[in-house]
Design a protein around this nucleic acid. Structure first.
Lengths: 182, 182
DNA sequence: AGTTAATGGTTGCGAGTCAAAACCATTATG
DNA sequence: CATAATGGTTTTGACTCGCAACCATTAACT
């Protein structure tokens, strides 16, 4: 049980997962990256639903993301909205049609058949593995606000210490690109 | 800690991993899929170093693999050898140059800095997760001979119960596409 | 202020991925 | 011996990918 073995298992898991997501994407007439971007946008908060965030999250270049989002917008799965305060940024929000596709395409995989204890053990193991890899390679952690060091809990929701803006309960369950683990 | 959360963590891990492998591939002048195919071939046994096996393993189509292997062969990273008994199959074996590239490109990631107990726990959890996903989606398991139900241990190495051919010690450490967990 | 960065996006290029389908050769099955 | 199954190659069209050039907007700095 060496680190090499762990690496091998991890890459294999990633490969199997990617194949099945690709299948799902194809079945819905999308490319793999298009579905991944759409799924991400469906759970990104308002600081994180822009092109640069998608590029960071998926680890692909801005150029690819630009065309990918164009394709999604062309199919009516997302809509692009220019930010009111910063005219450079374009917020991409899934349309109802896009959200429906996400709900249908996300595999709800074989995981639900695993025993509960095993699910918890796997999740914990993966999470610590993920954090280690992100830290070592300078990736953003992309977590939810409620687990972020900038988050200040309040009566209904809270406040982001970075932007000093209020967050609703729903906000705190979304993925943020500025997330930093405590 | 639901199955959905586990799925989310898994996909995120896969995404981070893929980005960093892509980076490594690019640094060596290869595409992601090309590096993945080369890494696979470096540890595949003689029943599993053919085009169809690569396609199964990576979850891409035969057409893509055909061109990918052509590209690798064109750079002198693998060599293609037609099977002596079955003229249809083409064995693809990494050249010394190809093996050197694999050794250099495989990340040896941040995992080595994790505590030993954590590595073992993560590996076990991931392995059972991987088996569950492969079983649920009809993927081949692609394991080593020594963990295969067809493997019959012998004095030096063993015998594959499926092909009835003898296997050396080294053979039993390689990846086989006919692998089936016990 | 006013130049200089830094950031967010778009566009174009060339190589290559990808699914699907048609196709050929070889081996297995009846 | 015909038919199927398997292993590979090739073609087509849409799209990805990295790279780099480019524009617009905002931030930083003497």
């Amino acid at each position: 049980m060496s680190a090499a073995k762990l690496h091998e298992v991890t890459t294999r898991l990633a490969s199997v997962l990617r194949s099945s997501v690709r299948r799902s994407a194809t079945a819905h007439g999308l490319k793999l990256v298009q579905l991944e971007a759409l799924v991400y946008l469906a759970s990104a908060n308002r600081y994180s639903d822009m092109l640069a965030a998608v590029a960071d999250y998926l680890g692909v270049t801005k150029g690819t993301v630009s065309k990918t989002l164009d394709a999604l917008a062309g199919r009516g799965l997302i809509e692009k909205l220019v930010d009111l305060e910063d005219a450079r940024v374009v917020h991409c929000r899934p349309t109802p049609k896009g959200l429906a596709l996400v709900a249908d395409a996300v595999p709800t995989p074989a995981l639900s058949e695993l025993p509960k204890e095993e699910v918890e053990a796997s999740t914990a193991a993966l999470l610590s593995l993920l954090r280690a890899m992100q830290a070592a390679r300078g990736f953003r952690t992309f977590g939810e606000c409620r687990t972020c060091r900038h988050f200040q809990r309040g009566r209904s929701g809270g406040v982001c210490g970075l932007t000093t803006e209020p967050l609703t309960q729903a906000d705190t369950r979304r993925i943020c690109r500025e997330h930093e683990a405590v």
